[in-house]
Design a protein around this nucleic acid. Structure first.
Lengths: 205, 205
DNA sequence: CATTAATAAGTAAATGCTCACTCAACAGCA
DNA sequence: TGCTGTTGAGTGAGCATTTACTTATTAATG
């Protein structure tokens, strides 16, 4: 974990900065802003505490850099345009659900960071939420709305419906990776199918 | 907020303890364990910092006392036994949903505390979760299972189904009271109806 | 291609401040 | 008067941040 400096590993600014950001991300995701000390970050990055402040003026600015970077990442697979274009409800919903489950399983620190930032009231937390959670729901809501207009699904409030679907998934990943409680007998792909079936049947005419 | 001491208000132990606990609950819910200082708690309770340590040996023990107390509270209305007994699906689901929404609206600090404790890895956080979240879901899962056995609902994994329903609600209250983003066009009771309709139709045979 | 001046990367050790926690003294009540 | 709830002034530890300094890399010059 700790990249111990094997004798003076002088790095160019960008690389070192990257290294610090990566280490800090792990720390902040694990213990939150208040729960993380600059000493911990330095240890995790394998550098001296002072160096952190050469790259970032304050601890808070390091935190901001991390959130900003995660905001910038693209939510790949969670807005399946093709499936949406051809009106394949099942594919749209499955894609959203399974890519969300997969993404969080691969990197739970992301979700932890999201929740920490919301709870601790970081200034960027709203943007964080908008960029990474809201957008997917809006995409789904628009899609559902269109399908309702086409008469393929029964009419209900599209935002509420999209929220309901996202909630099924969110609840699962939260329990699994945030509360870390045993969560379901079903395998992830069976769960996804269950959600999609339930939801589509619920919206059928 | 700060109950300023109007000249030496000597209180019996139990009362003073209560007062400290209540103030500390607000603080910890707002900023988490790491983000709260004993000074803040003292201010909020209107007592000196020293007094806190006469009633609780450590900051952590105060935190534990709070979590323990919240574990002990009963989740009123969220396990509607009568409606369940007479097999009124709509009443069971509506009752769970609307009492959860109402409870969190009335006291959002509860949910914040739950999430903080999970993220910060408080020792009691698992019990907290079990007592207050898991139990309701288990209740619902058993109910659904029974109704499936009776042939009133189609057969799906009851735990997954219960989780899906709870997720719809949880997602909503989280967005509203934790992320504090604008969340739905619908009024709470309309939302509840939408969830229940969607879910029951999804489980119909 | 040396030599060296300038700069960038790095650190250890301070700095002042805040934290959780303690304690001697005091004030209200039986 | 003795008991106890209460205070406010401590205390050392640990925090984010700064400083003063060392060492590696680059660039310019003869």
């Amino acid at each position: 974990m700790t990249a111990v400096a094997a004798r003076r590993p002088r790095l160019p600014t960008a690389e070192r900065r990257e290294q610090i950001v990566v280490a800090a991300m792990r720390c902040f995701a694990e213990r939150g802003f208040e729960g993380t000390t600059t000493r911990m970050v330095a240890r995790a990055a394998g550098v001296s505490e002072g160096l952190i402040f050469r790259h970032f003026p304050t601890k808070r600015s390091l935190y901001r850099a991390i959130i900003a970077r995660r905001i910038a990442e693209a939510p790949a697979g969670m807005m399946p345009a093709e499936a949406a274009a051809r009106g394949d409800d099942r594919a749209v919903l499955s894609s959203i659900a399974s890519s969300l489950v997969a993404r969080v399983s691969r990197d739970p620190s992301f979700m932890r960071l999201l929740f920490f930032s919301a709870l601790e009231g970081a200034p960027l937390s709203r943007m964080f939420y908008q960029a990474r959670v809201r957008r997917v729901r809006s995409f789904l809501a628009s899609y559902l709305e269109r399908r309702m207009d086409e008469g393929a699904l029964r009419k209900v409030d599209s935002t509420a419906a999209a929220g309901a679907f996202m909630g099924m998934i969110a609840n699962y990943v939260q329990q699994k990776h945030l509360f870390r409680v045993p969560v379901a007998r079903l395998a992830p792909d069976e769960l996804v199918r269950t959600w999609v079936d339930l939801f589509l049947k619920g919206l059928s005419r």
